[in-house]
Design a protein around this nucleic acid. Sequence first.
DNA 1: TAGGCCATCTGGTCCT
DNA 2: AGGACCAGATGGCCTA
Length: 393
Amino acid sequence: MAAASDVPAIWPGIRADDVNKRAIAPHSVLRRRVAMLTRLFNDQTLLPDVQKFPGWMDDSASDDSKTKDDEHEQCPLGDEDMKGSSRALSEITGDDDDDEEEEMDEEDCGDDVDGDKPKRRGPKKRKMTPERIERSKVRRSKANARERTRMHDLNSALDNLRKVVPCYSKTQKLSKIETLRLARNYIWTLGEILRNGKRPDVVSYVQTLCKGLSQPTTNLVAGCLQINSRNFLTEQCQEGARFHVPNPAFSLHGFPYQCPRLSSPQCPTGSSGPTLRNHSYCSSYDAMYAGGASPDYNSPDYEGHHSPPVCVNGNFSHRQQEPVSPNAERGYHYSMHYSGLSGSRSSAAHGLSYSSGARGGGSHSENVPPFHDVHGSNERAPVYEELNAFFHT
DNA sequence: TAGGCCATCTGGTCCT
DNA sequence: AGGACCAGATGGCCTA
């Protein structure tokens, strides 16, 4: 066992506690690691790769990094749990060539143990009886079921997220990664609005929303806002990767943009952006900023607001959770509404489904009403009151 | 047909 | 020991 004081200072991020806790020992192993790290530091060609790991110099990073690399290097100590998938497979299949594998691993990793091979530690391998094999299979199938459930929960949460970002369609779902990116941009945009207290122009709004999104998603968002994506994409490219409220020179203040849907009872079909196929959306921008216009809530086209959360009281809320009258709906000034379906669809097809696994037979954590008390409403209430006042002016 | 996206299985790791 | 979480592998589906 190496004392903490034996650890050379060049070993980044390793604390004395770590050394003791991890029971690393032979000095030869330590020397080998130091040599390897020294090579890493000296080899300029390796530096970029090394630096790619975020926080790799941190203590936490060193703790995490032990998982893969150190496991491998500790194999002379004979930790059976670290043998990897071939081990698990052989356990299940009951193969008896384990000893050969262990010897091979020890030879691979223990090239400099100077003959005094450390004894194997950890639990001794027990023979795989048919009962144990069966139990292992049962355990595995249960784990698979749990994993499926977990992923379904995650997908339900993503579905809920899709409904509150400013571009929602039942027929053309955003991918998971694009949903997350758009949500990030949307949050950032709202934050900027709160900070600046200014209404951005529509192009800036879309530009900000589309930062880092793929071309199809950008087109989709542009379609939601019913502007030509080329208008802002050209500038977006010039801006580079910097994420900011866009160039005022491109600003279209006073841009006489108005969502047709808001000016007519029904959002017209085919008003979508360049690459949209049979989807009609309505502008979140309008909904946020146009203020006075209200959709026809009795229209067959209105399928409720797959909308960004309403922040009147500092809480995000899905209003579909309880039935509300159309008049009550109108009280939300900047709720947003997206058709998500072609305007020619029948009303039957427009039944609002906020189920998304949560309410509709979902049996998981998504049953929790979304958005409530996500933020501490008390401490943030003044902010939202300001916002509220801002949008009412 | 290549590439993107997704669901599922699986083993590893950490935690209780 | 078992559950949660994670990431890699794999195969299916869809679209350009």
